[in-house]
């Protein structure tokens, strides 16, 4: 996994081939970064697998269309991450405007009476509940929580990936953990 600020030589070659229209090269590139990006997609959508897949797929198509604009001054993950984040923000604006989406997709407060939550005895259900809480954090907080708590990256790796200083990552992590803790405490009865 490349977590350097700049693109790795292998990725660089794959990007060049993808620019020439080699679909297989683009797919290989995506494969080595897809788990981190999908983890983020899962968290920003509050664990909605279907929506996360839609957003991820759109982001990948946008990445393929714009591959010639990728300058290689950051890692491919980081670039994909930005595209996904922008796509999601656009989606959320549209969803809020059109009011087409169910509430849980808009990151509203968790509904105490939702049956899946009331029956949350299985790990997957609790994980879904946790993702819904993570989805209520700011995008920047979700980013750092996803990379460190869900993808087990170190602070140094996150700094390289997001082009932030190590101090800034530590500070954001501290703030994000604090906010997540407050949300868990506020929704403590849902974890029973």
């Amino acid at each position: 996994m490349n977590t350097q600020g700049n693109i790795s030589p292998v990725d660089k070659e794959l990007v060049e081939r993808a620019r020439r229209g080699e679909i297989a090269a683009f797919e290989t590139l995506v494969r080595s970064h897809e788990t981190k990006v999908f983890s983020f997609a899962l968290n920003i959508t509050g664990g909605d697998h279907e929506l996360a897949q839609d957003i991820m797929q759109d982001a990948l198509i946008h990445a393929y269309r714009g591959i010639s604009s990728f300058r290689g001054d950051c890692s491919f993950s980081s670039w994909l991450w930005r595209i996904l984040k922008n796509d999601f923000l656009r989606y959320r604006e549209h969803a809020a405007f059109s009011r087409e989406e169910p509430d849980n997709r808009k990151g509203n407060a968790v509904d105490d009476h939702e049956p899946a939550v009331e029956l949350a005895i299985m790990r997957q259900e609790r994980l879904l509940l946790l993702r819904r809480l993570v989805a209520q954090l700011s995008i920047e907080d979700q980013e750092v929580i996803t990379l460190i708590e869900f993808q087990e990256l170190s602070v140094d790796e996150v700094a390289a990936l997001t082009a932030m200083s190590i101090e800034a990552v530590k500070s954001r992590l501290h703030r994000a953990r604090g906010r997540l803790t407050e949300l868990v405490k506020k929704n403590k009865n849902l974890f029973l």
């Binding site: 897809e34 788990t35 981190k36 999908f38 983890s39 897949q53 991820m56 869900f150 993808q151 087990e152």
Partner: peptide
């Protein structure tokens, strides 16, 4: 981390 791998259908 691998728990969040996207499905093959994607």
């Amino acid at each position: 981390p691998e728990d969040d791998a996207p499905p093959t259908i994607l």
